[in-house]
Design a protein around this nucleic acid. Structure first.
Lengths: 138, 138
DNA sequence: AGCGTGCTTTACGTTAACGTAAATGTAACG
DNA sequence: CGTTACATTTACGTTAACGTAAAGCACGCT
């Protein structure tokens, strides 16, 4: 029988989510995950998997682990509280604004760098003009 | 007469470039700037100002100070060497590719976050439907 | 002489998210 | 019972770019 009540060992978790054991232990120490302890071993439940999914998603959005911890904690306390949901939406909107600002600055920097590159290639082209004759066609 | 042969004190530099004295000393320690030493005081020359401009520009492009130091060093050694210029262009192109990749991932994350936000607002809307009657129009 | 201002050096502190090494434990296999 | 495989805890190390505190010159003014 599947005596594993739908739990995963640390290695299975690592393979499933492409993270290291150190990362999972770190997240537990930071109170982001709460695996069951079987003796000294960790057993990661479905809830842990759900949390880890949210954690990794949050990281993509640029939230710090501490931010994520607080957001998760809010929902652990009362996932059905509408006020909390609204608060979360606000936080997410703020983060979105930051990401879009970052995108805008990145776009500017990219354009600037492209300009610089063009300048540089002009320099090269100038030096590369072979002094065979005068003008240069072909 | 302007006995300052076109040099700036550390404070004047800070005001001109909006950086702290610590930053300028740090850049000197890292061999990014080479101010003249008048006794123990620093005098920043036109060349230093040019370098600092490049440093700050490089930072916008996401280069590390060490990257910048190497690029500057290349030009200090031989600014007219075409091979060096080509090498620099390669580095810049690589960096541009990285920035564009970063932009792409950022765009994806932004879209995802927007989707999440929409989901969240749906939740709110669902809860907010006042149970006055049955359906709800307007 | 005393004071204020601006500059200096030295050197430890900060932050995030793990990496990595060392020593130990334990369960199952043969 | 010895080995192997996987797990655990503890705790110091890493990286970048400065911040910040402490303590002390050096100059000019009064």
């Amino acid at each position: 029988m599947t005596d594993s009540l739908d739990t995963l060992s640390i290695r299975q978790m690592c393979d499933a989510f492409d993270v290291t054991p150190r990362t999972l232990r770190f997240y537990e120490a930071k109170e982001l995950l709460f695996p069951i302890r079987l003796g000294t071993r960790r057993l990661f439940t479905r809830a842990d998997r759900a949390r880890l999914t949210l954690i990794l998603r949050g990281k993509r959005f640029g939230f710090s682990l501490e931010d994520i911890r607080q957001l998760l904690a809010m929902y652990e306390r009362d996932g059905s509280n509408q006020a909390q949901l609204l608060r979360t939406l606000e936080i997410a909107k703020d983060r979105l604004a930051q990401m879009e600002a970052q995108r805008a600055e990145l776009d500017l920097a990219i354009d600037d760098l492209k300009t610089q590159l063009t300048e540089g290639e002009k320099m090269i082209a100038a030096f590369n003009t072979p002094p065979t004759q005068e003008g240069s066609a072909q």
